[in-house]
Amino acid sequence: MFERRRARILLAALVLVTLVLVTVDYRAGGGGPVATLREFASDVFGPIQDGVSAVLRPVRNFINGIGDLFSARTDVHELQQRIDELEEEQASISDLQREIASLRALLAMDQEMGLETVTAEVIGAPPSNFEYTVTIDVGTDDGVREDMVVVAGDGLVGRIVQATSNASRVLLAIDKNFAAAVRVASSGEQGIVTGGGSEPMRLELVDPDAPIEVGDEIVTSSYEGGTFPDGVPVGTVEALGGDELSRTATVRQYIDFTKLDFVLVIIRGPVRPPPPPVDPDEATATPTSTSTPTGTATSTADPTEPSPTPPSETEPAIEPTPTATSST
């Protein structure tokens, strides 16, 4: 009887404590004393998750290899179909040349954009199935800060929402709390894309009359100096929706978020070319307008993975942190 009463009192007390915790953290908006606790937990678990991830890597690769083996037959069949289609269509030379040029541009984009990045390995997932985040093995010691953009070979991954000394949490682009300014690659029409959880992402165009078609590519936009660098691939339009007042579409993302292994954190966005050196003897002369291409601040995760962002020379810096260092 006594124990039962004790349990009831304890139940009421702990419920009260949790309600106070929820209220305090809710009002602090993720800051305050509870945030310190959260960072402490991240600091403790980060290295352990890193170690476990390293230990499990061979097992994970083995499991992925089995999966790839099963899908290989399907892939071969699909590729054979594609070859047949191409042979039948006899694509014009100009189209092929355009495609080659596009691929060359993709391969060269990291040198041309001058992104300063930090390579990170995904070491953990959240305990909840309702939160689409991952933990990566780099933190403030590596120059990572909150709101920095994270990309992978295929395109946009998300942004940093918490950075501790040795680990960071990335809010994935498919999380329903995620939103990014984007544009339709072909037309330049601006919009906002939001995560859809286990469903496709949702795009809402600024101009409801903007032309958009299924299959159009969606890339990030640095409209009005936003968080994201311009041109990072997000996905393709899967279906159209909306009405006369608002034009919406669902977007199928490029990234396979179930197979994230390595990502790049963009420490510094595309930088402008430095001004040309001035010869003191010719200081009074008119400065030359030529500039050297940037690329000294680039470090990529995997040499086999091209940077996902297209070339651009006029984008503003995302996070102007001169002291940030890059590592691979």
Partner: peptide
């Protein structure tokens, strides 16, 4: 513990449900 390992606040929801 589950709450503290999440990135999105508030802390306490899992604690309430679990207890």
């Amino acid at each position: 513990l589950a709450d503290l390992l999440l990135a999105v606040p508030p802390v306490g929801i899992n604690a309430l449900v679990f207890l």
